[in-house]
Simulated assay, not measured.
Amino acid sequence: MSAYRTVVVGTDGSDSSLRAVRRAGALAGACAARLVIVCAYQPPRADDREVRRAQEVLGDDAYQVIGSGPAEETLRTAADKAREAGATEVYPFAVVGEPVDALLDVVAREQADLLVVGNRGLNSIKGRLLGSVPSDIARRSSVDVLVVHTTG
């Protein structure tokens, strides 16, 4: 088995997702792999009441970044954390779309061989009822998935 060549990790800027970024950065550094950090976001709309309502109901499980500015800031922070953890070749991507679809699209486009996600939402009631990013990723990914224990 060869080492991973391209690792993709998703972040929404939460502490949980940044723990996954640090783990992916350490792994990419150890494997001398490229690290692609993805932040999926939705463009701001004149009427974002539906998104705000979902964020109020779901809280930390909302997985939603609104606007390219916040996405870019999230990526700058994540890239710094990944480099601190050992990654040397870091490529940040802000992508319009839902997190699962955005991550899987980047995995395919970059020909990644590992996708790293945190476990936030995996064991929550909301995650079980509504689905979660880690469970959807694990079910749909065509490459290896590392689910990092990032929640208390």
Rank of each mutant, 00 (worst) to 15 (best):
T6A: 10
V7D: 03
V8M: 15
T11P: 10
T11G: 09
G13C: 11
D15N: 11
S17W: 04
A20W: 05
A20S: 11
A20D: 07
R23C: 04
A24Q: 01
L27S: 03
G29P: 07
A30V: 06
A32C: 07
R34H: 13
L35N: 00
L35K: 04
L35V: 02
V38K: 05
C39F: 00
C39R: 11
C39Y: 02
A40V: 10
Y41I: 02
Q42E: 15
Q42L: 15
P44K: 07
D48E: 15
D48P: 13
D48L: 15
R49E: 05
E50Y: 12
V51C: 00
R53I: 13
V57N: 03
L58E: 08
G59E: 09
G59Y: 05
G59H: 02
D61L: 15
I66E: 03
G69T: 09
E72K: 12
E73I: 11
E73R: 15
T74R: 01
R76V: 13
R76C: 02
T77K: 14
K81N: 04
A82N: 06
E84A: 10
A85I: 04
E89I: 08
V90H: 06
Y91Q: 14
P92Q: 09
D101R: 12
L103Y: 12
L104G: 13
L104Q: 14
L104W: 12
L104M: 14
V106I: 15
V107E: 03
V107M: 02
A108R: 15
Q111W: 00
L114F: 12
L114E: 15
L115V: 11
L115F: 10
L115M: 13
V116K: 02
R120L: 08
G121L: 06
S124P: 09
S124K: 01
I125F: 05
I125H: 06
K126Y: 01
K126I: 12
R128L: 10
L130A: 13
S132K: 09
V133D: 10
P134I: 13
P134G: 12
I137G: 06
R139C: 10
R140C: 08
S142F: 00
S142E: 03
D144Q: 14
V145K: 09
V147F: 06
V147A: 04
H149Y: 08
G152L: 05
